[in-house]
Design a protein around this nucleic acid. Structure first.
Lengths: 342, 342
DNA sequence: TTGTATGCGTTATCAC
DNA sequence: GTGATAACGCATACAA
């Protein structure tokens, strides 16, 4: 498995490297016989063009950069899975960068990705990122960029997200239809796009069902496993405590389940619980845990497709749009289970 | 955030590119004043060396390749997390390749990684991989290689694995000490190193406690969620059915919990269950689920450290050894929980 | 101490 | 149709 270059082929065939190069890329004006000989030789030597040299030349590197907050997160690792599947099929490599939820590091990641001459960039913003100047510069350099999951409204690019509004609406509606009227919403950092969309869906459902919005029922945070308990306590000590919980992440759903369990609150007798979730075992924790399943893998796939489409058709402008991937509502009780595509 | 080259600095300062190059890498024989001016200019222009050009030059690419079966797997995503943390600290990028458990694809990955001129390779073998010729060729090219988790005895390289033997021994011992005598072992593909080590630990514990090994209690496979149930049925219909289960993965532990639950078998009254697991919520499924926790992140960290050590000290040979990262036994019952570092 | 020339693998632009 | 040459960004052997 030696590694041969265009030069080796040229020497072997006693022709010039330029001829080989042209033959390999099937240039018109090349003798069919020469072409055949070059091809044969390349085949025989198992010649593979050196991607590094290609990148240096300024042409495609056939690599896409993926910048995301955390790999060790079920949502993102599934998303990567989707990305990698598409990239592989279309002949691209994936170079992964973790921002670790740090704005500083995200900027460094962008720089590194650019200097590695990625053909395009797929980004899910860190929770610290407010300013998107660094991404605007990517666009200014004409490097295709697609945002996924955590996006910014300040960037005029293609975005691929879950239908957070729809999912949250459906979740809240489900609870309201069950007769719940005090739905607490436990969610993550308030400035993230996904948080705002979910909150909007939640509010829209309340409004539609004539239930007043109560700020006290909303809790934001980056909850560690031991922080959910106290928050539940707080909520349950409100004058009119919640009769249902709608959580915005796996961790919150699991933390909530635990906290409720420890307080001997049963689901759904005492309170209802529905979570935005990816963790496919979460519902096993409690057969009555309904969930809005986020299409993590599909988001990755679609984002990668859009990005590569852009990379490969740089000449013609592709429409810039926000793609919302439907979520799925899975309603469970101890006795039945029902999945609804939204 | 324009991107400047060594040439720009040279032009700006009216000196040659070689001088700049040398000044930048702090060569001895360079005028202190010149050096200072170069540094200042580089700083001012926010100069970053082009990694592509460096790679082409044949020097370090400061990238390491990671080839593993699946990203969307809690163990591997945690391992990547550990790898990335170390790599980042030591100034390396991580390029990830998924073999998707395919031998063909693993070979392609290796080739691609090599042609991307990675400085070193971190590999966890696909379940299809029997022949390791492709990895031997990596070594022949003097590219450092470290195996982790799924390793091959045919390769004389540094390996980083969980202490599968110790973990399995402790798990089995725990069950035997509880008085169980028919411990079923549900595990993955039999030819994988990790499978064999766990089986060996299991057998060693049986032997030490004078319990006869029974082949009928061992089940291998790549179980989907619906395949565990029938297997449990089979086992429970043996003449002397198991009184305990020891499972070798998250998926098996979860599947087993489900299957037992559906059959109204209670833990630990009817059967005991202990799993080799990484999924930190698995125990929430059943407070009496004991687990052997695999140090996924630490395996990644140590593997990355070893690899980078090798990359950076290519001249001197580093000891080749198999590093076994201790597992942790967490014994749980509905009333108590106890963690034992092994 | 600094500058010049060369090469890494490839392609584009000229020549012939 | 094919070959020679320059260029991508950098490092280095060799000159000066």
């Amino acid at each position: 498995m030696e590694t041969y270059t265009i030069k080796d082929i040229a020497r072997e065939l006693g022709i010039s490297t330029s001829t080989v190069s042209r033959a390999l890329r099937g240039s018109y004006e090349i003798n069919a016989e020469t072409k055949r000989r070059v091809m044969e030789c390349a085949e025989r030597l198992n010649y593979r063009p050196n991607p590094i040299a290609l990148s240096l030349k300024g042409s495609a590197s056939r690599a896409i950069g993926v910048i995301l907050p955390q790999i060790a997160n079920y949502f993102f690792s599934q998303a990567i899975n989707g990305i990698e599947a598409i990239a592989y099929n279309r002949g691209y490599h994936v170079i992964i960068f973790q921002s670790q939820e740090s704005y500083e590091r995200e900027m460094a990641n962008v720089q590194q990705a650019m200097s590695r001459k990625v053909d395009g960039l797929l980004i899910s913003l860190s929770s610290e990122t407010a300013d998107v100047e660094h991404l605007q510069e990517v666009l200014d350099k004409n490097v295709p960029l697609v945002l996924f999951d955590r996006v910014s409204s300040e960037l005029n690019v293609t975005k691929v997200v879950a239908d957070n509004f729809g999912g949250a609406f459906a979740a809240t509606e489900h609870l309201l239809k069950e007769g719940r009227r005090r739905v607490a919403h436990l969610t993550i950092q308030p400035w993230l796009s996904i948080t705002q969309e979910r909150l909007a869906g939640y509010r829209a459902a309340l409004e539609q069902y004539g239930v007043e919005f109560d700020e006290n029922l909303i809790r934001y945070g980056t909850f560690g496993p031991d922080e959910v308990g106290p928050m539940i306590d707080e909520l349950m000590h409100l004058d009119t405590p919640p009769d249902a919980f709608f959580t915005a992440s796996d961790r919150l759903a699991v933390g909530c389940l635990q906290a409720l369990g420890q307080r001997n609150l049963h689901i759904p007798e005492d309170v209802s619980l529905i979570g935005f979730t990816n963790l496919n075992v979460a519902h096993l924790l409690n057969p009555a845990l309904s969930t809005v399943v986020q299409p993590a893998q599909e988001i990755g796939q679609v984002a990668a497709e859009r990005l590569i489409d852009q990379i490969e058709r740089k000449h013609r402008a592709l429409p810039i749009e926000t793609v919302r991937i439907p979520t799925e509502l899975i309603v469970r009780s101890s006795t039945r289970q029902e999945a609804v595509k939204l």
